[in-house]
């Protein structure tokens, strides 16, 4: 502290470029806070009427806001969690292949292709889900439900179109795959060369080296990547709205016609024709989604901070 003050006193003269740049950086930093605050204030102000509204205006079953929003929260988290379940192992595998297994030229090409996947708009994923994936999955769902319907996850009756929460989870998994892969790959490449060589010198196989040196070092990075992917999966609107056959229910069945819908998709579907307090209700569900993502991100920060000492990043 003392020294910093001393240093700045020694150089009272500041160049114009420095002043402009520090001013611009400060403005950018403030702007992001202001826009976040503006969104928060808008959400809260517009949500208030929904909380105090007559329950019969809020939802068609007349049980009020919370019974309307809980299934939506469940659907949002359920679809995102399923997507993460598919995407995470696959992403880490691809990232490790690119960073530690593939020949350099193949690794470059593969990295490029994966990044390209991130640039595909979600509407295109939605179209693909509805016209290709859902019809292709339907016969598989039919036979799974036929033989395994005693497992609650695969309970019937099977959907006739394949537009189920499982199909949505697969589409979402493809969408978040490039995000998690790209970030994990960068983190794996940062592993200190010394750690890797030390592991190999001690007689570790390549897999053991990855297990002992790369993965512990990359863990905070993997968690950050996962949270970014999860954020996209939680907020994804268009693809879910197009592919899913939605209901406002809580159900773990993966292959039926009635699937729990997500908050974002529900807003997209119902906003165009909403009026009066219906608009406030939809915005209030948006506020809940905002809180969920905030919670997820804080949780990720907490995990990363707690693990920092053990990560081997030193």
């Amino acid at each position: 502290m003392e020294t910093q003050v001393a240093v700045s006193r020694q150089r009272p003269q500041r160049r114009l470029g420095d002043v402009v740049f520090s001013g611009a950086a400060l403005a950018a930093g403030i702007l992001i806070l202001v826009s976040l605050a503006a969104v928060t204030i808008f959400l809260i102000a517009q949500s208030l009427p929904a909380f105090s509204a007559d329950p019969s205006d809020v939802s068609k079953d007349g049980r009020g806001f919370w019974s309307y929003v809980v299934p939506l929260v469940f659907g949002t988290v359920w679809a995102a969690a399923l997507a993460l379940l598919f995407a995470l192992p696959l992403s880490i595998g691809i990232a490790l292949f690119i960073s530690h297994y593939a020949p350099r030229r193949l690794a470059l090409t593969l990295g490029y292709v994966i990044d390209l996947l991130a640039a595909v708009p979600s509407v295109v994923f939605g179209l693909w889900g509805i016209t290709v994936l859902a019809p292709a999955m339907q016969p598989i769902y039919s036979s799974v439900v036929e033989s395994l319907s005693w497992i609650p996850l695969f309970a019937g009756p099977v959907s006739g179109t394949g537009r189920t929460v499982l199909t949505v989870a697969i589409v979402l998994a493809v969408m978040i795959l490039p995000i998690i892969t790209a970030l994990s790959r960068e983190v794996f490449l940062q592993t200190p060369r010394l750690h890797e060589e030390a592991a190999l010198a001690l007689g570790a196989t390549r897999w053991e080296m990855i297990k002992m040196a790369v993965l512990p070092f990359g863990r905070p990075g993997i968690i950050s990547a996962t949270m970014l992917g999860l954020g996209r999966a939680l907020g994804e609107t268009m693809a879910v709205a197009m592919v899913l056959s939605p209901s406002v229910i809580i159900s773990f069945a993966l292959m039926t016609s009635q699937n729990p819908t997500t908050i974002a998709a529900n807003i997209a579907l119902n906003f165009p024709e909403a009026s009066g307090v219906g608009v406030n209700v939809l915005i209030a569900t948006g506020l809940i989604l905002f809180l969920i993502t905030l919670l997820v991100n804080s949780l990720a920060r907490f995990i990363i901070n707690r693990r920092k000492e053990f990560s081997g990043a030193n």
Partner: peptide, 28 residues
């Protein structure tokens, strides 16, 4: 009302969504 009244069957977004779902589905 503008909302489908029952929690049965499948939902699809927009006219084109319904037509797609019926076209690509089985027994729809």
């Amino acid at each position: 009302s503008d909302t489908f009244p029952f929690e049965s069957g499948e939902g699809a977004k927009g006219t084109s969504g319904v037509v797609d779902a019926v076209t690509n589905g089985v027994g729809t």
